[in-house]
Nucleic acid binder design. Structure first.
Lengths: 224, 224
DNA sequence: CCTCCCCGTTAGGAGCGCGTTAAGACGGCG
DNA sequence: CGCCGTCTTAACGCGCTCCTAACGGGGAGG
């Protein structure tokens, strides 16, 4: 899912943008000041940044410079100022686009799409390898004993959720969210059925799992 | 030197932009209508295009589409219309930026610099070859058994989307986005129809696909 | 020793997704 | 205005995935 970092100190704008973006299927990360914005840029790796210029702590241009020093993420500047100088400065420091408030949500969404489309494709995540199988996240493929094996979409979503957090416990709730979506967080039944399927396909000895471990009462864990 | 294609039928604007750009060391290629603009885009290979939407022969969006069909050159749309719909349409068709008249020369120059800076240094796309067929990305041609075979525009967009990600799974959503645009992401029907067409033309045994593989519930994959 | 959770396993039916075909709508071109 | 190619849409059969329920086992606690 595409992640959008929204940097604005005005709660009303935060709320409006959050609703509009989430309605279109974006994941929204809010930030209220420049410091947390810069931090979020390197930690959460958003796919695009919406940056208000009028922030309480750092100037917008300052934020832009810091972000650009680390990262190539596309930045769309939001500003109430119509002045030409601000635009020129922001664009020259490295902004990808500049939108003047007030703006229509449609236009903003279109500019977000354009920015994401232009973005340089990031390098594919490294494959996850164990002694028994290999998971190619980018290609959505699983290999075992040299041969590819087929997973159903649901199986793949669960395996992905586990494998991208190696060694960490993934709660039943998390797994149900990623596999089926909210509204199914109580159906722990499904997990037992599908984990059984995954073990049958991946584990050397499905009756005694080595990689997909049950944490009773909590969830499951992928052990590399 | 950076070359700028300026597409506008108003001689005054042509003149103003020409002077402003040349003063900053850009080389300016003028075009007064859509037809010559499209032609100039492939012959003269400009580094950035300034495109007025109100042209005498073709609609600006039409020009944009034709240009985008051939190369990745950044396009900045100039328009007198403030309406949100025009912006959204232009950006979704592939514009990189949208500036409303009247605009300051400083701002425009800044946006030109931003567009050029973003531009990906393009590499010549290598032809994709398999035992059964050969796809020339640059020339938009497909050969099989020595002879060229004709693809419809939609077929080509789909094949391109698949072939440029060899081995990787391409989701139904991605394919629908690239083949038809947003708003069609639910019409998985189209994919079945068009993949059938591609297989009929490309696969040695269309009933048992070898290169264009279905991943049930997820999408399709090109296997070289 | 008994009981209660929680987990693993299995099986079957419902419904979805895919491939295929064909007919009608649409638009460009002569 | 008529032709042709492309796109859209609907319908059908089939295989497979998903959901669901039921049963058995094992560990903890009383």
């Amino acid at each position: 899912m595409t992640r959008v970092l929204v940097v604005d100190d005005d709660p009303a704008i935060q709320r409006a943008l959050g609703i509009g973006l989430r309605a279109r299927g974006y994941e929204v990360l809010p930030a209220r000041d420049g410091r947390t914005a810069v931090q979020a840029c390197e930690q959460d790796e958003p796919d695009v940044v919406l940056l208000d210029l009028g922030l309480p702590d750092l100037s917008g241009v300052e934020v832009l410079r810091k972000v650009r020093a680390r990262n190539q993420v596309p930045v769309i500047v939001l500003s109430a100022r119509h002045g030409s100088d601000d635009k020129v400065e922001a664009l020259d420091v490295g902004a990808d686009d500049y939108v003047t408030k007030p703006f229509g949500m449609d236009e903003l969404l279109a500019r977000v799409r354009a920015a994401v489309r232009r973005a340089v494709p990031e390098e594919p995540p490294a494959p996850v390898v164990t002694d028994a199988f290999r998971v190619e996240l980018a290609a959505k493929q699983v290999f075992r004993d040299g041969g590819e094996l087929r997973l159903t979409p649901t199986e793949w979503r669960l395996l992905e959720a586990l494998v991208t957090r190696p060694g960490r416990l993934v709660t039943q709730r998390q797994l149900l969210m990623e596999g089926w979506g909210p509204g199914y967080v109580a159906e722990t039944n499904y997990l037992r059925v599908y984990l059984a399927g995954l073990r049958r396909k991946l584990e050397p000895d499905p009756s005694r799992p080595r990689y997909l471990i049950t944490e009773p009462g909590m969830g499951y864990r992928f052990v590399p």
